[in-house]
Amino acid sequence: MATYIFYILGIIAVVATAMAITRRNPVHSIIYLVNSFFALAMLFYLLGAPLVAAWEVIIYAGAIMVLFLFIIMMLELSPGERADRQGPGPLQWLPVLLLGAALIGCTLLLLKLDPAGSQNIPTWYASPRDFGYVLFHEYALAIEIVSFQLLFAAVGAFYVGRAGGRKEAGGIK
């Protein structure tokens, strides 16, 4: 049964992604993409990576996509809503709704199959404990490097943002 769920989720991910990259309106793309990432998160869970699945939701679907959304809105990149129309038509909201419903359906099915997570649906899985042990033992140096990278990224983003804000003063020197 879990195998079918896997394939369904795979189809959802592919369809959502295909929809995402074909939208003219970037906001719509982001919505489809969030769907796709949710499906991926479920796939990660099925592959025995619950922690990664959680982070997929938190970091990708949450933080990064929200950041995208924020920028799109700030730069007013999506075509404006027309005054004579009430809102998006069914062609625009129906597919995303169907995808979302399918996702929720899969989730519920999985919960029903294995309410306590003890049915061995992921045949093997890495507990957060094992995961953290490996991460901080074998990859301690990598963690440090990556954290530095994040710091540099923050500084860089801050600088580029300031330079962009001071366009009148000549932009990036």
Binding site: I64, L67, F68, I71, M74, L75, A153, A154, G156, A157, F158, V160, G161, A163, G164, G171, I172
Partner: peptide, 10 residues
């Protein structure tokens, strides 16, 4: 993403 989006803004 943070860097690229900052660049996009710029």
């Amino acid at each position: 993403v943070s860097i690229s989006l900052a660049m996009v803004v710029y």
